[in-house]
Write a protein that binds this DNA or RNA. Structure first.
Length: 367
DNA sequence: AACGCATCCAACCGCATCTTG
DNA sequence: GCAAGATGCGGTTGGATGCGT
């Protein structure tokens, strides 16, 4: 049985609001408030509109101090970095931008910002490609002349050094999906859950599955299990996540770190790129990179970061020999939490939850 | 001027969550 | 504890507008 409609669809006006309707709604709410009941409101003031429609009209256009259009560069940066951190949680993003509505931000992102970023990304990718090609050619020339002069065969042009002075890549990388990690069925979700520090026994899983079935939940609801077992429950409770307490956290609590190492190489790569993006925008500098905690699993495939300073100076599969990512997975995650701190969310654990939820939902979404 | 296509954005819809009785 | 209703949210739609030919 479906839900009962919130209003009588046949007798409700749809489409653009007239100035008269706006005036009626505005005058009433300014004088009486919403009365805590949007559904009853249109009848009270004689509007042939659905209560939901009234609410939307008020929140997005009629309430005081609403700004429309004219997004500043700073607002662009905030939207981009929050989108990278928490995804399409427009209401949370809107809460950081006074006078902006979630609908406005969503539209702005979908119609302009996304394209703006993609255009930028393409340009920069091409520039990097051209640049790395040049450098590669130089190396080849230098190498071949060196070989000719000294007969030295140990030099390897594909050996990557830790050069943190080199400019960072500016846009998120594009990575390929490791098929082994596909989460498109119950059994692979089970695998993921089992990897969470081994805290999901077969019986636990069976129990959860039964619960899910009895509640009519689909496979995405495994997210809820994951959520309740959030390894970040023991995350340091300070209001800012520093490199020191992050390190301490991962020393004390390996499960999340293990989880990332074992199961979310894609996520690591994505978040690493996101963290680079954020640091470029000067949004967060609460931690230092450089822990050797989370090597990219052998065989991970990375594209689009040619010439970057984080050892991924080429496209294609990464071998254990050629590169590691200096713990960027957990650190990038930490930075996500930290970024939410910066946004003055009231509760630190809530922020960790947000980031963790996002981690998992994105991970699910990748498959 | 007329047409077609692209873009923008207000509004709708369905679903999830919260609240209330 | 449960069901029904209310609210909030994010994805999507479709009409208005702009622009190029």
């Amino acid at each position: 049985m479906g839900r009962a409609p919130c209003c009588d669809k046949a007798n409700v006006k749809k489409g653009p609001w007239s100035p008269e309707e706006d005036a009626k709604l505005k005058a009433y709410i300014e004088q009486h408030g919403t009365g805590g009941n949007w559904i009853a409101l249109p009848q009270k003031i004689g509007l042939k509109r659905c209560g939901k429609s009234c609410r939307l009209r008020w929140l997005n256009y009629l309430r005081p101090n609403i700004k429309h259009g004219g997004f500043s560069e700073e607002e662009d940066n905030i939207i981009c970095s929050l989108y990278i951190s928490i995804g399409s949680r427009w209401s949370i993003i809107a809460a950081q931008l006074p006078g902006r509505t979630d609908n406005d931000i969503k539209n702005y992102w979908n119609t302009r910002l996304k394209k703006k970023l993609l255009g930028k990304q393409r340009k920069e990718h091409q520039a990097r490609k051209a640049n790395s090609l040049k450098q590669e050619m130089k190396k080849c020339i230098a190498n071949s002349s060196n070989l000719m002069l000294t007969g030295n065969t140990t030099q390897n042009p594909n050996y990557f050094t830790h050069d943190h002075e080199t400019p960072l890549p500016t846009m998120p990388c594009i990575y390929t999906i490791n098929q082994d990690l596909a989460l498109n069925d119950q059994s692979s979700i089970r695998k993921l859950l089992m990897k969470l520090g081994g805290r999901f026994s077969s019986n636990d899983h069976h129990h959860h599955q039964q619960q899910q079935q009895s509640h009519g939940l689909d496979h995405n609801s495994s997210y809820n299990n994951l959520h309740h077992q959030n390894p970040l429950d023991n995350f340091p409770s300070s209001t800012t996540s520093t490199a020191a307490n992050t390190q301490q956290f991962y020393d004390n609590n390996n499960s999340f770190s293990q989880f990332l190492m074992n199961t979310t190489d894609q996520y690591n790569l994505e978040m690493a790129a996101a963290s680079v993006q954020m640091s470029l925008q000067g949004i967060n500098s609460n931690f230092q990179m450089g822990y050797d905690m989370n090597p990219v699993p052998e065989g991970s495939c990375l594209e689009g970061l040619e010439g970057s300073s984080y050892n991924c100076s080429t496209s294609g599969p990464i071998s254990a020999e050629s590169t590691s990512w200096d713990g960027m997975g957990p650190l990038a995650y930490t930075q996500t939490v930290s970024e939410l701190d910066r946004c003055a969310q009231p509760d630190h654990m809530l922020q960790a939850d947000y980031a963790f939820e996002e981690l998992h939902s994105r991970y699910i979404g990748l498959h």
